[in-house]
Structure formats: C-alpha cells, structure tokens
C-alpha cells in the first residue's frame, strides 16, 4: 500500500508542476507527502468573487484507497468560505470525501469539485448546527460521520 501511495502522489505532483493546474487553483505547499495546500478561488460569476481560500490536504499511506483529509485553512490570515456545507473550523461536508470517495479521484479532482460546490452556491449561510459541530468536532474531518443531504456535492 505504501508503494502505491508514494507513486500516486509523486505522479500527481509531477502533473501539477508540469501541466499548470486548472484555473483558480494554485499549489502553495507540497514539501512532503503528508500535507499539501492549495489556494482556491472561484472564477466567473459567483457569490465568492474576489475571495481566496486555502484548501489543505492531509494524506496517509492508505491514499488513494481511502480519501485524503480535506479542509479549508482557518488561521490568523485565512477564513473558510461561508457556505452551507462548510463549517467555520474549515471542515467540509461533501460525500466524495467520505462514502462516495473513489480511488480513481485525485487531489485535483477534489479541488475542482470543491470549486464547483462554491460556484453553485445560491446563498451564503453557515451549516445548521455550526456552533455545536465546531465545539465538538475532531481535529481530523475524516473522523466525522457526515450525513449527506445534498446530491450536488
């Protein structure tokens, strides 16, 4: 498993570095195979015009058979987007990061999905129960059992 994990991330990284990533995405950090950070913005007409976010990926050697841990960076400079599926601690409720994950998906395909999740947002609002979730959430969003109520993500 460990061999696949290194080879896959190595290949994905080479592709990102050689072929420029899709519009609106920029690799900020990929010094190792533990944590990668992307800058993400939604181009074109959307509620998030002009906003920039940072998306953090955490991997372990079960990747790509198990989904990476993906969340928005929330720190002194960055905020998570206000979105009905994004908690203020940066955790994202999206089925492809959980039960709908497929090993054929990649880091870039996750970024694109998150981009389109933001692009299609109709109303900026926090998820229901945000405060309770943020207070009790585990550090790793993969440990949360989200209930997916929306087929669009």
């Amino acid at each position: 498993m460990a061999a696949v994990y290194m080879r896959r991330l190595g290949k994905e990284l080479r592709e990102i570095e050689t072929e420029a990533p899709p519009a609106g995405l920029r690799l900020l950090k990929a010094d190792d195979f533990d944590t990668w950070i992307f800058q993400i913005e939604v181009l074109g007409d959307s509620l998030y015009r002009g906003e920039r976010f940072a998306l953090k990926f955490r991997f372990d050697n079960t990747y790509p058979f198990s989904a990476p841990a993906v969340q928005f960076v929330v720190d002194s400079q960055m905020r998570a987007p206000v979105h009905p599926h994004v908690y203020t601690n940066g955790h994202i409720c999206a089925s492809i990061l959980g039960e709908d994950w497929s090993p054929t998906l990649s880091v870039i395909s996750v970024c694109i999905t998150i981009q389109s999740m933001l692009a299609s947002c109709k109303k900026k609002e926090l998820p229901e129960g945000n405060d309770t979730y943020v207070r009790t959430a585990p550090d790793n969003p993969k440990k949360t059992h989200f209930v997916y109520d929306d087929d669009t993500v």
Binding site: V4, R7, R8, K11, P64, F65, P103, T104
Partner: peptide, 10 residues
C-alpha cells in the same frame, strides 16, 4: 496498448 492501472499507474 499495455494496461496501465488508473489508480497506481504501475
């Protein structure tokens, strides 16, 4: 075309 596994690319 040799088979290349779309997951491990091995």
């Amino acid at each position: 075309q040799p088979f290349v596994c779309p997951i491990c690319f091995d």
